[in-house]
C-alpha cells in the first residue's frame, strides 16, 4: 500500500531524512517511533505530497507522490501534528467543507459527516464552533477530517500528543477500530504507544532508519539478549566450538573478518555478563584476542532515549506541578 525507497529530504544544511526505505501492507497499523526531530514529520509530509523528496521514491496506493500527487492525496487522510482547523467554523460545517475539497460528492456529504462524527464521538458538539472546543475534541475533529473521504491510508502525526490519559486511551481505541479497512501510519515519541496499537514499528533516529520489526520481536531483541562481537586469531572451528560451549551463550554466528582473522557475533542471555569469561577462554586457549565489543547498542540507546525522554518529560512536568502548588 505504501512503498518508500531511498527517501531523502535535505533542508538548507541539515538532512532531515536520510535514505529511508520501507513498505507497508494493506490494513497494517505502523508506528513511526523516534525522538523529536528524528524526521518522522518530514517523512509523513513527503508521503502526503506536502513536501517533495530531495531523492528517492515514495508511492501510496500505487501512485508516485511526485508524478500523481492528486491521486495520492485522494487516497490519503492526513492529520498533521496540530489539527488544521478553522476556528470560526462549526464542526459540521468544517467537516462538510473538508469532505468537499477532498472530492466527496455533494449528495454523499451528509452521510459521510454523520458517519465520521459518530465514529469520532463528536455527536454532541456538531453544532459548536471549533474555537470553543477543548483540546481533546479538536484532536477528534482533526481525525474526523482525515477520515471524511474514507481514505485507504491514514497518516496521523502524533495523534495523542497533548491529550489527557483518558483521551489517549480513547484515541488509541479509535485507531485500533479503524485498522483493517484502513492502512494506518502513526508517529509517536512514546514507546508504549506503539506496543499497544501497532503491528509494525519503524524506528528512525536523526533521519536514519534504525529498525523495522514487530513490537514483540523488538522487545525480545532488546531485552532478552546482548550481542557481542569478537575477533579471534586461531583455528576457526575450534574457536567456534569453544565459544559455543561457554555458559550463557545462546548463539554464535560467523562473520566475515578481515584477511586471516575470524570474527563472530555471540548472542547471550542478558543477565550473563560473559565478556570477561570470553576473554579468559580465548587467552587460555592460546589464541589472540583482537577485538571484543558489544554490538546493537545503537538501537538500545534509542530506546533508552525514547523511554528516558518520556520519563524525563514526565518528571519535569511533575516537578513543575508540585512547584506550582507549593
Amino acid at each position: 500500500m505504501i512503498k518508500v525507497e531511498g527517501l531523502t529530504k535535505r533542508y538548507d544544511r541539515t538532512t532531515a531524512v536520510d535514505h529511508i526505505s520501507f513498505e507497508v501492507q494493506k490494513g497494517q497499523i505502523v508506528g513511526f517511533l523516534g525522538p523529536n526531530g528524528a524526521g518522522k514529520t518530514t517523512t509523513m509530509r513527503v508521503l502526503t505530497c506536502f513536501l517533495p523528496p530531495t531523492e528517492g521514491k515514495a508511492s501510496v496506493a500505487g501512485y508516485d507522490v511526485q508524478e500523481h500527487p492528486l491521486d495520492v492525496k485522494r487516497h490519503i487522510g492526513y492529520l498533521p501534528e496540530s489539527p488544521p482547523l478553522y476556528p470560526e467554523m462549526e464542526v459540521d460545517e468544517y467537516l462538510a467543507f473538508t469532505g468537499r475539497i477532498k472530492g466527496v460528492s455533494s449528495g454523499g456529504i451528509r452521510r459521510r459527516v454523520d458517519d465520521v462524527t459518530e465514529r469520532c464521538a463528536l455527536g454532541d458538539v456538531r453544532k459548536k464552533l471549533i474555537s470553543k472546543l477543548s483540546r481533546g475534541y479538536r484532536q477528534r475533529v482533526g481525525l474526523a477530517q482525515a477520515l471524511i473521504h474514507n481514505p485507504d491510508v491514514l497518516i496521523l502525526d502524533e495523534p495523542t500528543a497533548g491529550l489527557d490519559p483518558k483521551q489517549i486511551i480513547e484515541t488509541r481505541k479509535l485507531i485500533h477500530d479503524l485498522s483493517g479497512e484502513h492502512t494506518i501510519i502513526l508517529s509517536t515519541h512514546i514507546l508504549p504507544e506503539v506496543s499497544t496499537t501497532c503491528q509494525l514499528v519503524i524506528i528512525i533516529n536523526q533521519g536514519k532508519l534504525e529498525a523495522i520489526d514487530t513490537p514483540e520481536n523488538l522487545t525480545a531483541r532488546l531485552q532478552g539478549h546482548e550481542t557481542i562481537f569478537v575477533e579471534v586469531e586461531g583455528p576457526a572451528d575450534q574457536v567456534a566450538a569453544r565459544l559455543q560451549g561457554l555458559a550463557g551463550v545462546t548463539r554464535v554466528t560467523r562473520k566475515d573478518g578481515q584477511a586471516g582473522r575470524n570474527s563472530w557475533e555471540i548472542e547471550t542471555a542478558k543477565d550473563h555478563n560473559i565478556r570477561s569469561l570470553l576473554a579468559h577462554a580465548v587467552v587460555t586457549s592460546g589464541w589472540g584476542l583482537h577485538e571484543l565489543r558489544p554490538v546493537g547498542l545503537s538501537l538500545e540507546e534509542i530506546f533508552l532515549k525514547l523511554t528516558t525522554s518520556d520519563k524525563a518529560a514526565e518528571a519535569a512536568a511533575e516537578k513543575q506541578a508540585s512547584g506550582g502548588t507549593s
Binding site: K73, P84, T98
Partner: peptide, 14 residues
C-alpha cells in the same frame, strides 16, 4: 499561521 495550509495542500486540489 494556523497550519490549515497543510490541509489545503494535502487535499486533492490544484
Amino acid at each position: 499561521r494556523s497550519g490549515t495550509i497543510e490541509l489545503l495542500m494535502t487535499s486533492p486540489l490544484r
